[in-house]
């Protein structure tokens, strides 16, 4: 049940390259090239949204709503972007993104064999991410 709420997860490095992509049951229409292209497009759109802001200090798009999905985006101060595509109105997505950021710092950045800015291939990260995504929403709420 809980699994269905999230369609996919992207992580983009600060230059706009896709470094992690995970599908959780979207209609399965995206191959690697598609996901890479969408990620760099989102990177640019995010930058444009900052330019559109009438006041300074804008951090770009946090939430994009469509009639059949929501896209929640979180950008760390170091420029790495995390975003999930989920069901409309799925709760606690900001919290989820923050937890994913913590997992990234623990299991990706602390892995001495991970090269910065390169695609993430870390089993520990995959494993812990799966646990967080599957966890009941109530558990996330309690953090």
């Amino acid at each position: 049940m809980a699994l269905a709420a999230i369609y996919n997860l992207f992580i983009i490095n600060k230059s706009g390259g896709l470094i992690y992509y995970k599908d959780y049951g979207s209609a399965g229409r995206m191959d690697t090239n598609d996901s890479l292209r969408l990620a760099s497009l989102w990177h640019s759109m995010h930058a444009i949204s900052q330019q559109l802001s009438p006041t300074p200090g804008c951090n770009g798009i946090d939430l994009l709503q469509a009639h059949n999905f929501d896209l929640h985006c979180f950008q760390s101060l170091t420029g790495t972007k995390f975003f999930v595509v989920c069901e409309t109105g799925a709760p606690n997505m900001e919290m989820l993104l923050k937890v994913i950021y913590e997992l990234y710092t623990d299991f990706v950045l602390k892995n001495p064999f991970y090269e910065m800015e390169m695609p993430i291939r870390c089993e520990l990260f995959d494993h812990n991410l799966a646990q967080v995504i599957q966890k009941d929403r109530v558990a996330l709420l309690g953090r």
């Binding site: 923050k98 913590e102 990234y104 710092t105 602390k110 910065m116």
Partner: peptide, 9 residues
């Protein structure tokens, strides 16, 4: 690498 952990936590 460590700066991200600091910011996240």
């Amino acid at each position: 690498r460590l700066v991200d952990e600091f910011l996240a936590k």
